[in-house]
Amino acid sequence: MCLLTDSAMKNAPDCRRFTCAPSSIGSPAPSDRGTETGLTTGRVLGALGLAAAGFLVLRAAERNRLQPQKQADRSRRADAAIQMGRASSLLAGSVFADSAMEHLRGGYHRRAMYVAPAMAGATLAASTSSRARLSRRNADLRDGIYLAGIATGLTGLGFHLWNISKRPGGATRMNNFFYAAPIGAPGALVASGLYGLAAGRLVRAPQMTSRQEGRLVGSMTALNILATSAEAGLLHFRSAFQNPVMFLPVIAPPAAAVALAAAVARPGRQMIKIARAACGTTVATGLAGAAFHVWGVHRMHGGWHNWRQNLLAGPPIAAPPSFAGLGLAGLGALDLLEMEAQP
């Protein structure tokens, strides 16, 4: 088997280097496939990710356009609830996969490290379970799970801070912020739980006006986006922004946060439209980010052939979808804000 791309092929007309001299010790295996080869795979993945993201943006925009202006408030609230549910799921899914991987990297040397993926998994299950069967009891159970998720996230935050503080130099050393337990990550679980709770509130009888609801969720989302963006920025800075596309998550989402905040402050038609586009872009950023990270893993030394190292040492594939979740939450918040923007 010869795993060379065209360009490498031209340079190495024979594939002999991949054939192992027969030996009594082991059987031949292609080893370090050139890490520079197969850029095409990466490009295809990147393109697919971008296409998927684009598709979602278009759909969001379309739905917006098709929405009959006079739709009943009830169903608008239900729509927002669905968005919140999705946001909660995406965030929980992201935390589930990411914490499972990162804690695997940490060797699960503390039992407590299993709690994060477990609670993220529970949150994920709660937020994806069918809304149709939403009995009162189920709803309470779900709220309980979300609250437990939030508590886990907050505890995780504490643990991560403690982890940083006990390393040499503690909080005075950038090394610890770069490489010790990330501060922001558990926050995503808190956010996931909050959106789950919000989704639950939205299918029940309103306790405040929709605008108030929209403002609450919208400002929370703007803050979440900024925090997540800060985390991405820190880690991309750690990697020296070696690829210009790494600036994307520190530009697009904060712009969305600002737009969202503006819409919260003055929920006019125009502003909501802009914020909607910005939140759509944040969704796209999250999805494209995952694709870019897949490509990034491939570009690590040994590529996917060396997956056991590179999935952990390379860019975290599961992290960027958090942005997608936050983008959806933003869209949901805008749904709510829009209701009162109607005449």
Partner: peptide
């Protein structure tokens, strides 16, 4: 040596060790 077929060994390392061991 149990890692022989894993990505821990590149081709030249296998060649060098094959020679040394056999």
């Amino acid at each position: 040596l149990r890692k022989w077929d894993s990505p821990s060994y590149n081709q030249i390392t296998r060649d060098v060790l094959t020679e040394r061991l056999t």
